[in-house]
Amino acid sequence: MFSLKISQKSLMSHQVDLKRNLMLSGSKANKLAMLIIRASVDQTIRGGIPTCETAKELLETIKKQFEGSVRARQYNYLIKLINLKYDDVRQHILKVSQLIIRLRELALQLEDDLMVHFVVASLPSKFNTFKVNYSSQGRK
Rank of each mutant, 00 (worst) to 15 (best):
F118Y: 15
L58Q: 03
N133K: 14
I82T: 01
D17L: 13
S122N: 13
Y134C: 06
L4E: 12
I101E: 12
H117F: 14
S122Y: 07
G47E: 14
K9V: 15
T61L: 03
S10P: 00
Q74M: 01
R139P: 01
V70I: 07
S27L: 09
S10F: 12
D88A: 00
Q65L: 09
N76C: 01
M23Q: 13
L110N: 05
L123P: 06
A72M: 05
R20V: 08
M23S: 10
A39M: 09
A121P: 02
Q137L: 12
I37A: 05
I45N: 06
K131S: 07
M115W: 04
K28A: 13
F127N: 05
S10D: 15
C52H: 05
L108F: 10
K64S: 08
L4D: 11
S135C: 10
L110C: 06
I45T: 13
G138Y: 08
M12A: 15
N30T: 06
G26W: 04
V132C: 05
I45Q: 09
K28E: 14
V116L: 12
L32R: 13
S7K: 14
L11Y: 15
T61D: 02
I62C: 03
F130C: 09
L110A: 07
Y86R: 00
I49P: 03
A33P: 05
I6K: 11
K63H: 07
V89D: 02
I82M: 00
L81N: 01
K5F: 13
Q137K: 13
S69T: 06
L84W: 00
R102G: 07
K19G: 03
R71G: 04
